[in-house]
Amino acid sequence: MTVMLYATTAATLFALGLYAVLVRTGLIHRLLAANVMATAVFLFLILVSAENPEGVDAIPQAMVLTGIVIAVSLTAFALALLRYLQAADDEEDQTGSQDGRQNGPD
């Protein structure tokens, strides 16, 4: 019963994340949605042995720990890239409004 509950939650979280990745345009929202998807997969990995009579299985737990560190690495780089990208966008907006259309497409 408990596993069914958590399995439904994991599946719904995955689908929710995927939906948000598809329909949201903001980069931060997309990153968060991807992180929700990743969490859903981690949750599923842990559920595999949740009702195991022998006790929990350490292999998925280790995989999830590795997965969490990889997720935080990717997210950290993505967030840094996002900040610099937005700064460049702004700069372009400003020069664009000052110079008018003199530059044109290159």
Partner: peptide, 16 residues
Amino acid sequence: LAAGLAWLMYSLTVAD
């Protein structure tokens, strides 16, 4: 997707 995955995840083995 959520419905299919939920069914699949629940149906998978719990033994070692």
